[in-house]
Design a protein around this nucleic acid. Structure first.
Lengths: 112, 112
DNA sequence: ATATTTAATCGTATTATTACGATTAGAGTC
DNA sequence: GACTCTAATCGTAATAATACGATTAAATAT
């Protein structure tokens, strides 16, 4: 017999915030995609081909990773002639940053 | 013929920083694990059973997710009698937070 | 029009993740 | 000792992710 007074009625797996955070984190959850973000951060050479030259992965694989980052809203990709110009999207990065800042600040609360 | 002057000799997939960031993000990359972190943040009830009552997942599944979070260094798990007490690990959260803060601050650099 | 360049998509094989029920193992209780 | 409670692990099925080469499509150049 349990008398659990749950204060967690607000935490569920369908919560858009939870889903959004997981989505962004998942997009970041592969070394190739972290590396791509770093490359995009440091330079204004945002073409797929440039990344293909830097990372030891096939063009189709890079393209797949770019697609994943774009789907998660972390980067934009605009066609520029025969190429596509990829660019970081501050909003998406901010989303995850917000969650983590909040989490970090809450860490003061006692546990164990 | 290309004359790429790469300034990215420092970015590679074996870079421990890149690998670490991806590892942490991957651990966060599932709604159940984000929810678990939120639960651990808000309360000092850190037992597996408590989480099992809050989230609509089997005990074995929760246990699996806890294992993943622990492996990534985001939580600790200490046996306390018949139970195990789980707790957020500030260091791991900070690792990812650091990367994202840096990324965010770099977003000012021109691109597209 | 033909050829070239760039990047997306297709097809596919391999591996990893996710979820569950069942079982196991250890701690505490009767 | 037998019993209960908690949580880890096992076994397994279904799904997703990853990587590659090959192909396609669109833009540009010759």
């Amino acid at each position: 017999m349990k008398e659990t007074i749950s204060t967690h009625s607000s935490i569920n797996l369908q919560d858009p915030d939870v889903i959004r955070t997981a989505e962004i984190a998942k997009a970041l959850g592969h070394p190739a995609r972290v590396a791509i973000l770093k490359i995009l951060t440091g330079q204004n050479t945002c073409f797929c081909g440039d990344i293909t030259e830097i990372l030891p992965l096939a063009q189709s694989t890079i393209s797949q990773h770019l697609k994943a980052l774009k789907k998660a809203g972390l980067i934009s990709g605009e066609v520029d002639g025969v190429r596509t110009c990829y660019c970081l999207k501050p909003d998406g990065i901010q989303d995850l940053n917000d969650f983590l800042s909040k989490l970090s600040s809450d860490l003061m609360s006692t546990c164990c």
